Simulated scan of single mutants.
Amino acid sequence: MNGLYALKPWYADRLSGLRRALAARQVSPDTLTAAGVVCAAGAAAALAWLPAPPAALLVAVLLAGRLAFANLDGALARDTGRTTRRGALLNELGDRAADLLVIAGFLPLAPLWLVAAAAFATTLPSWVSLAGAAAGAPRRNGGPVGKTERCLLAVVAAASGWAVPVLAVVAAGSAVTAVVRALWVWRALGQPETTVAAAARERVVATKKAMATERDVASEKPLVRAAEPASSAPRRRPSPSPSPSPSSSPTLGPVPCEHDRSLPLDPGEVSGGITHTRPQSPADRGTRLRGAR
């Protein structure tokens, strides 16, 4: 039993052009949430201070704007990828504030106890829906007297002046709506775990998308490149100095002298890494000098 909430897809389709225009102008979804609260406050003021028949048109226009902004803020956030956890919180607080403001418009027109009872009753369906969603059930909206029906009843009160009967219907209908939602949530939670787990996964995915959006917004700030070295001058890698091993270290033997003829060394002979030349005798030097002549 969704009531007038079943018309939400049709209503959202009618607002698609306005949603694209708002996205092109980069309007914040939070601004639309605040605008919905302002419309609700204006409707409450018109209901409280204007006479019954003339107030109906202004109350109807302002409450239609309140419903339009309530539809646009979430849709715009999803279309532009700006869904955040803070935005979801602000959306819930804005809806509850708008509901209570409309009920506050009945203060000059009805007994205080009835206004207080209606204000309490209008919050019950949302409490049930949020509790069910926290337990793992899908979010339940609509009902015999949901948000849309309460706005319509406020227009009826502004047009007829029957504030007390209308407020009584709002209080009783909201309580019945809370009971209907509670029964639906109870049945949903009693289904197999797979159904509840699927709903929980959807909430986890939505939360991750919101966190990713927040990180993207935070990443737009200038970052410091931590990998860049402090000095721009290139560093010279020190050349490794191999440690000498016993097998590769040269072994120095006795160096022959001119008078040592016991070592038959040839020119260019390498002994232990040192090049030796054969000592020349006086006869060899004489042969070389005769050849030079």
Rank of each mutant, 00 (worst) to 15 (best):
A200W: 14
A175Y: 07
V179A: 09
P240H: 15
V169Q: 00
P229Y: 07
S219F: 12
T213H: 12
A218T: 02
A172S: 01
A171C: 02
V204C: 00
S174C: 05
A199M: 06
K221V: 14
K208H: 10
V169M: 07
Q191T: 10
V255Y: 04
A199R: 04
S245F: 03
S231A: 08
T213C: 08
R215M: 13
W184I: 08
G173S: 00
L263M: 09
T251D: 01
P240E: 13
E214T: 12
R235C: 14
V176T: 05
K208R: 12
S249F: 03
D260P: 04
V217H: 09
A230H: 09
T195H: 12
P222R: 05
R203D: 12
R261V: 11
A199F: 00
V185E: 01
A198K: 02
A188V: 10
A172Q: 07
A182T: 00
P244L: 15
A227N: 09
V180M: 00
R181S: 05
Q191C: 05
P246S: 08
E214D: 11
V204H: 09
A227E: 12
S232N: 10
V170C: 04
L183R: 11
V196P: 00
P250G: 03
E220F: 15
Q191F: 06
L252A: 09
G253S: 10
P192W: 04
